[in-house]
Amino acid sequence: MELKTPISEDVIRSLHVGDLVEITGVVHTGRDAVHKFLHDGGSLPVDMRGGVLYHCGPVMVKEDGQWVCKAAGPTTSTREEPYQAGVIQKLGLRAVIGKGGMGDKTLAGCKEFGCVYLHAVGGAAQVLAECIKKVRGVCMLEEFGSPEAVWELEVEKFPCVVTMDSHGGSLHKDVFASSKEKLAKLL
């Protein structure tokens, strides 16, 4: 299923754990420094309502005055667990892309505010960079450095799996529980 940004709440509510989606439109990167900054009361000069936040610290190189993305896979999301639900509410996000999944607080935030967690394939920096058609801009570059800056990216058919939905479903919880049970039998 293709998701075009900005995404409506109805579309988000129609998604369930296990769905494969492709995002087309605009996504913003944001990771550790930005989450703490927003949590501490900071604000960004970009409007992300209905938008998508991507946990990613890309490799960016300036070629002929233009930023070019050389690699852009997801980073581990769980570090943002203390802040994510608040950031979803504050920015009006409809989707968060990352890897490794997130915890109960974010899951509750997804349910309350109508958001989903999308898992991109970790390490697949080239496949995902090929989906980035243009680097539209950047903010907080000086303050946070390149991997931590907020990059505005135009993407086409960016592939992800819904692993946490807006109905309380989490693939991460399910796989952890079933693998723990299996291990107990194998010990």
Binding site: K70, A71, Q126
Partner: peptide, 8 residues
């Protein structure tokens, strides 16, 4: 493309 397998 001689580019990083992973961005990290």
């Amino acid at each position: 493309k001689s580019q990083p397998i992973c961005q990290d």
